[in-house]
């Protein structure tokens, strides 16, 4: 009897610790390799010094860049989740599939084209840039929210209803939590698209790190281009990591395949 209990305790513990090891070790290893490569490169060339001459530009344009991403990504989440949720309601069942098909077609338009269209509508500057990025970011969020909510098993909804939940309680206590993991997946994809496309907005006059990248390319100035490219890459990595962590911790363990 006591043997059996200790065995079961061990069985419970080992996957938990294993999860920790894998979830920590992988990024750590990756970072170590990157750090090593960077260290070697720094010691071999004077490129870092040249890049650092753009320090002030990096800080100013980087700030602008983050602001653009934050606005468009934030707005996309704030609008995409409710739109997806609304489309998943039975009342919208008729139109939702058609609308989603429309969204899917929209997703095939390259971001650059969206930005161009946005510029023809709204002119140049921050507003059309945020609008264009928002439009490019929106779809994965809407699609995943819709799919996640529709995938909540019908019997859970029936159980909730049969136990006396109001429609609002059913949504907040059962449907949304059970769709959360999929929704987070959409947000993660969407923000990756957003961060990845953000340098393009320089082309419609909204600044950002794209300014260093495109100008660097145009002038054949490698350090200048890298001064834009490296922070952009870092931003993408950090954003994805952050959303990943949020997904890990915010989605309840019962429905989180990651833990």
């Amino acid at each position: 009897m006591s043997e059996a209990t200790t065995a079961s305790v061990q069985v419970q513990k080992s996957p938990a610790s294993a999860r920790w090891v894998t979830s920590i070790r992988t990024p750590v290893l990756v970072w170590l390799v990157i750090a090593l490569a960077v260290a070697i490169w720094i010691s071999l060339s004077d490129m870092p010094a040249e890049i650092l001459t753009y320090r002030e530009d990096i800080i100013y344009l980087g700030g602008q860049h983050v602001e653009l991403v934050a606005w468009s990504g934030g707005l996309a989440i704030l609008t995409g989740v409710p739109i997806g949720a609304l489309l998943s309601r039975p009342a919208f069942q008729r139109v939702s599939e058609a609308l989603l098909q429309g969204f899917n077609v929209g997703a095939t338009i390259p971001t650059l084209a969206i930005l161009a269209l946005s510029m023809t509508l709204l002119g140049i500057g921050t507003v059309p840039a945020v609008f264009g990025l928002w439009a490019a970011t929106l779809l994965p969020i809407v699609r995943n929210t819709y799919a996640g909510l529709r995938a909540v098993p019908q019997h859970l909804i029936e159980a909730a209803c049969g136990m006396g939940m109001t429609p609002a309680q059913m949504f907040w206590r059962v449907e949304l939590p059970n769709a959360l993991f999929v929704i987070f997946g959409g947000v993660r994809t969407a923000l990756a698209i957003c961060v990845g496309s953000a340098p393009l907005v320089f082309l419609i006059g909204a600044g950002g790190l794209g300014e260093l990248i495109f100008t660097g390319i145009a002038l054949d100035e490698l350090p200048m281009m890298l001064a834009g490219a490296i922070p952009t890459a870092l931003l993408a990595v950090v954003t994805d990591f952050t959303v990943g962590r949020l997904q890990y911790y915010l989605v309840p363990r019962g429905i989180n395949p990651l833990r």
């Binding site: 019997h155 859970l156 159980a159 049969g162 006396g164 206590r173 059962v174 939590p177």
Partner: peptide, 20 residues
């Protein structure tokens, strides 16, 4: 709503909420 809260309900598929 009140009626359902006053009646215990067990569905065929058990229907435990996986998030809770």
């Amino acid at each position: 709503i009140q009626l359902r809260r006053s009646i215990g309900y067990v569905i065929q598929q058990i229907g435990l909420f996986p998030n809770k």
